[in-house]
Write a protein that binds this DNA or RNA. Structure first.
Length: 593
RNA sequence: GCCCCCGUAGCUCAGUGGAUAGAGCAUUGGAUUCCUAAUCCAUGUGCGCAAGUUCGAUUCUUGCCGGGGGUACCA
């Protein structure tokens, strides 16, 4: 089925040729969705055509409209207001759409095959010294949703995680545990592993601060105290031992990391996200060194007298960037050069997306430039999906000040709120505890996911816990509730035979059909822009449109059996799109709530 | 200092080179003999400022103001 705007453009082009003898490129003809307050479905903007018609906007629109109505059964009527030619699409066309394309399995989505583009997407990328918090939640939800959207748009997608499991921060947790843990572990304490380890990370910071304060009291300068604290020196020593493969340190490291992974796994499972492959920085941190050294040999990078290696980025308007320390160890950039190389060698990806916060915009800008310098033609296939920070109403989250929002706590709270809401409203009273728990989980998680994904990724957002547990209005539960009502109607109407639509569509019905018609377009745009918020906001508009229809018109008690059936088609199609769209956001939809 | 992002209603967010810039929350009031009222309807206020490009700018460009981030031999 050809898209309506394409047909209209071709028709308008024909009219222009016929009336004014000009052969115009179709791209020069503006066709847009008619704004809500005006009659019509699609609008041709005439202003750019005036130079050809040499007539007023109104006259131009009227001539075009008359021609288009006369020459196509698709155009049922038109009006011209201030140079905007509003076209009404015939009921016939909408009905064909309703009976055909809209009924198709997985309407709007494309399937990938062997030859489809391969997209690699890295997200989550946690540190193993503390549990996941709200910032990670945004990262994870974005990564997961973008991966789904890309897949539904006909790409092969590979989701990867890069765990930062080495470095001084992990040693800090290990050291504090060694000093004060007394052998505590997740089994003995009943605490989730990532939280347990996170607590020792915090404990280290307390020890460190106490020692610095003590040193300052004894007359040391703050700077000397901070640099010379023995706990920090011990942590550094531990890192040295780790790098030297010290058996004891490595064993502790592996034990504590395994606690953390178990905890992460639980959090990921609860969030409904997964990866096709997980990389560990302890395995990859040496990658890239060789490539950088080769870059020096090829003359695209340079070495200072102290042995450190640098890239000169002045041609790109940037500074010089360190790629290898004077002691020969790698920096973050070196590692990313290595992993990008490795992943391309492994997969030959067509594009690679990094879901990383916007504080690393500079890093990824430099990464692309350095890879180009090293001669990788695929450097331009890397894309940094840069998202804004999540802030609390009282300001930034700071782990030191205890103002972080923990991911697990947050999920608990959302589910508890879903339960409370439901009980207050007296819903689900005769459901089993098992069913209730499942539904509250779906609703609570739906609220959280939608709250975060409806915001444009690149913008910073404010997370207000009070607002997040409001399940009315532009929220996940609003859309889920709409879906539950749809399913309820469908269950009751299912004895009615399948039919084709024959009855006249009313205004609300056309509005609904028109919105659903736009769904594939929205998906394509979301995929192109890597922006789930487009899907989220579309679903909200769709649900709202449906609720108005539902409120104004009876479905099961419509005027005639034919109308009942036609409305059921419409209702079912709406439900399918909500389900499919919510799935792209990683949100489940309940049959009842 | 330099670089990047953001600035839309009291708050949280949509949106667009085009018509009278929208939603939710909050406020106030209304709707349920009927498909789930977690619904629907009504109710005021706003594109940071200034110039430019354009038939037309909230949208594009430049400058300024405000907020955030970056500019580490940290990751």
């Amino acid at each position: 089925m050809q898209k309506i705007d394409q047909i209209l453009k071709a028709l308008a082009k024909e009219a222009i040729g016929e009336k004014w003898g000009i052969q115009l490129e179709e791209e020069l003809i503006q066709v847009q969705k008619t704004r809500k307050d005006f009659t019509g479905d699609f609008t041709v903007v005439t202003f750019s055509l005036l130079r050809y018609s040499k007539l007023s906007p109104e006259e131009t629109g009227t001539i075009l409209g008359a021609y288009m109505q006369e020459h196509s059964i698709m155009v049922a009527g038109f009006n011209v207001i201030k140079g905007f030619l509003n076209l009404e699409i015939s009921q016939q066309y909408w009905k064909e759409f309703l009976d055909g394309e809209l009924k198709a399995e997985a309407y709007g989505t494309l399937n990938a095959d062997k030859d489809s583009p391969l997209v690699m997407i890295e997200f989550s990328s946690p540190n193993t010294n503390k549990p996941l918090h709200l910032g990670h939640v945004r990262n994870n939800l974005l990564g997961h949703s973008v991966a789904r959207i890309l897949k539904a748009s006909g790409n092969r997608v590979q989701k990867v995680n890069l765990v930062n499991d080495r470095g001084i921060h992990i040693c800090k947790s290990m050291l504090a545990w060694k000093k004060e843990g007394n052998g505590a572990n997740p089994e003995s304490t009943g605490q989730k592993g990532d939280h347990l380890v996170g607590d020792y990370y915090v404990r280290f910071d307390q020890l460190y601060k106490a020692e610095v304060a003590a040193l300052v009291d004894r007359g040391k300068s703050k700077q000397d105290a901070e640099a010379g604290a023995t706990v920090l020196e011990e942590a550094r020593e531990m890192l040295r031992l780790w790098e030297a493969d010290d058996v004891e340190v490595r064993a502790l490291w592996e034990t504590m990391n395994s606690w953390v992974y178990k905890g992460f796994e639980e959090t990921y499972r609860r969030m409904g996200i997964s990866f096709d492959k997980t990389y560990y920085e302890s395995n990859t941190y040496k990658l890239g060194r060789e490539l950088v050294v080769r870059g020096v040999e090829e003359g695209v990078l340079y070495k200072k007298e102290d042995g450190s290696i640098w890239a000169n980025l002045e041609d790109e308007g940037l500074d010089h960037k360190l790629l290898l320390r004077s002691d020969g160890t790698s920096v973050y950039m070196t590692q990313d050069v290595g992993t990008a190389h490795q992943r391309f060698e492994e997969s030959g990806f067509d594009s690679h997306i990094y879901v990383v916060g916007n504080e690393q915009n500079y890093h990824f800008q430099v990464l692309t430039i350095v890879l180009k310098k090293l001669g990788y033609e695929w450097a331009d296939r890397l894309f940094h999906l840069s998202y804004g920070m999540v802030e609390l109403p009282e300001g930034k989250m700071k782990s030191r000040e205890g103002t972080v929002v923990d991911a697990d706590d947050l999920m608990d709270e959302m589910e508890a709120t879903a339960r409370q809401m439901s009980e207050e409203l007296g819903k689900l009273e005769n459901f089993s505890e098992e069913d209730k728990t499942r539904i509250f989980r779906q609703v609570g998680m739906g609220a959280l996911k939608y709250f975060i994904l409806k915001v444009d990724p690149k913008k910073n957002m404010i997370f207000d816990p009070r607002e997040s547990v409001d399940f009315n209005g532009n929220t996940g539960p609003f859309i889920q509730y709409t879906y539950a009502r749809i399913r309820s109607v469908c269950r009751k109407g299912k004895e009615i035979e399948k039919c084709t639509s024959a009855e006249a569509l009313n205004e609300k019905e056309i509005a609904l059909v028109h919105m659903m018609y736009e769904y594939p377009e929205i998906l394509r745009e979301a995929s192109r822009a890597l922006n789930p918020s487009l899907v989220a906001n579309f679903l909200y508009e769709l649900a709202k449109e449906f609720n108005q229809f539902y409120h104004d018109h009876s479905i099961l008690s419509a005027d005639s059996p034919g109308q009942v059936c036609q409305r059921l088609l419409l209702v079912e199609a709406t439900g399918n799109i909500i389900e499919s769209g919510m799935d792209l956001l990683g949100i489940e939809v309940p049959e009842r709530m």
